Every structure is written in structure tokens, then in C-alpha cells.
Simulated scan of single mutants.
Amino acid sequence: MSQSLIFDMDGTLFQTNTILEISLQETFNHLEALDLWDKETPIEKYREIMGVPLPVVWETLLPDHSNEVRQRTNEFFHEQLLANINRGNGALYPNVKEVLSYLKDKNFSIYIASNGQIEYLNTIVIYYKLDKWVTETFSIQHLQTLNKTDLVRTIVTKYNIENGAVIGDRLSDINAAKSNGLLAIGCNFDFAQEDELSQADIIIDSLLELKIVLAKLNAEYTKVNN
């Protein structure tokens, strides 16, 4: 099996919920101060749609607001996310660094493909020093289509990946894997949904399981091709 792994970021490597609630609350407090909001902060609604591109997020959370207000709100929210990461309020999932270090030592090439914005992803990568293991991070902002499948295809094409896996928690990750001829490894983490995960080739409950899963797959591949 090709030594190439493409990870999602939010809900897979990074525990987005550690900064999500506080950043969203700060954002809707801001809207309320501007007389643009008078309801409860829609945290649960945001959890339901985690993983979709940000324009879709604000169309969903602010259906009755103008595109201009949505854009300004997105910018404010983004600023709060970055600030909370840099304040140390965020967290990686357990064993992320251990697993990435292990995979790197086993000569896996590691990439990140995320619907997050470029600056947001770079802030996480820099703060947690993920660039020690990650070859390159790709944001949906790099594409006009805002499509995860197209984003993964960009990585596959750039690095000539023939076999490998996409590791993520949502259906967009699973679809991106299968559409590009890659293995779909679903992460049963915070934002995962059972009906979506059921479409993955393999489901893991912890990133540590990747060690066993990938070793087994590699052994099977070697056996078949020898």
C-alpha cells in the first residue's frame, strides 16, 4: 500500500469543540451588541453541520441575514477562533503527535485536507508544530468549487498518489476518499454521525488504532503483491 495518508483537521486531528463554543458565543454576543441577533447562540445547529464550507455555515446559522452581514460575521468568528487557539484554549485529540510521529517514522507521507480557512489551519499547524510530520496542508479556500472531493484530488494529483487513505469524521471525507480511489477511514469522534460513518471502509474510535489498521493493511498488500 502506498505510504500516503490525508487527514481531515476539525473533528479528526483538532478538537474543534474546545474553541467552538466560546468563539461562537463571542460572535453572537457581538451580533447582539449590533442589534443583529436576539436569540440563543445556535451551538447545536453548528455542531450538526460541522465540516461544511464556511459560506454554508453562515447561510444556515443566519438564514435571514444579508450576505454582507454573513461575511462580516464569518470574519469576526474567524478572528475569535485564531485568538482562542493562540491563547491555548484548543487541543489536539489524544495521541495525535504520537501517531503522526509513528507514521512519519514508518515513511508515510502525511497531508491535511480541510474545509477550514487557510489562516485558521496554519495557526493550528504552527501552534502545535504539526509541520514536523505534515508534508503540506490544503484548505478548501484553494478551490473555487469548495468541494472536499476536488481538494483531495488536488493532493492526489500533485503528489501522484495511487493508493492511500483519507482519514476523517464526516461524509465529505468518506466521499472524497472513494471518489479518488482511496481507502476511507472514518473517525468515530465528537462530530461523527452513525449514518455517515457506516459508509466508511474502516471505522476507528481512537487515532491509536491507526497503527494496527495500517500495519494490517500493509501486510495484506505485501502478501498479495509478492
Rank of each mutant, 00 (worst) to 15 (best):
N17S: 13
T18Y: 03
E21H: 07
E21N: 09
E21D: 13
I22A: 10
I22K: 13
I22T: 12
S23D: 00
S23Q: 02
L24Y: 05
L24D: 08
L24H: 02
L24N: 00
Q25E: 15
Q25C: 11
E26R: 14
E26A: 14
T27A: 00
H30Y: 15
H30L: 02
H30E: 12
H30N: 12
L31W: 03
E32D: 07
A33G: 14
A33P: 07
A33Q: 15
D35T: 11
D35F: 07
D35M: 05
D35K: 15
L36C: 01
L36V: 07
W37P: 05
W37V: 00
W37I: 05
D38A: 12
D38M: 06
E40T: 13
T41Q: 01
T41H: 06
T41Y: 00
P42H: 06
P42E: 02
P42G: 02
I43Q: 05
I43H: 04
I43Y: 08
E44G: 03
E44N: 10
E44V: 00
K45E: 13
K45R: 11
Y46D: 07
R47W: 03
R47I: 02
E48A: 14
E48V: 05
E48R: 12
G51K: 09
G51Q: 03
V52Y: 11
V52T: 10
P53Y: 07
P53N: 00
P53E: 05
L54T: 11
L54C: 04
P55S: 07
P55W: 00
P55N: 05
V56K: 14
V56I: 14
V56P: 08
V56M: 12
V56F: 09
V57S: 08
W58S: 02
E59T: 11
T60I: 04
T60Y: 01
T60A: 06
T60H: 11
L61M: 09
L62Q: 05
L62N: 04
L62Y: 09
L62P: 02
P63I: 02
H65P: 01
H65N: 09
S66Q: 00
S66C: 05
S66K: 03
N67A: 13
N67Y: 11
N67K: 15
V69I: 15
V69L: 12
R70Q: 12
R70F: 08
R70T: 04
R70H: 03
R70M: 11
R70D: 00
Q71V: 03
Q71H: 12
Q71E: 15
Q71T: 14
R72Y: 05
R72P: 03
R72V: 10
T73V: 01
N74Q: 12
N74K: 11
E75N: 14
E75D: 14
E75G: 06
E75C: 03
F76D: 09
F76I: 10
F76Q: 01
F77W: 03
F77L: 10
F77I: 08
F77G: 00
H78Q: 12
E79S: 15
E79L: 11
Q80K: 15
Q80V: 08
L81P: 06
L81I: 13
L81S: 03
L82W: 08
A83Y: 13
A83F: 12
N84H: 14
I85C: 06
I85M: 10
N86Y: 10
N86Q: 15
R87Q: 14
R87M: 10
R87Y: 08
R87V: 04
G88E: 03
G88V: 06
N89I: 01
N89R: 13
N89H: 13
N89C: 09
G90K: 10
G90W: 08
A91K: 06
A91Y: 02
L92G: 02
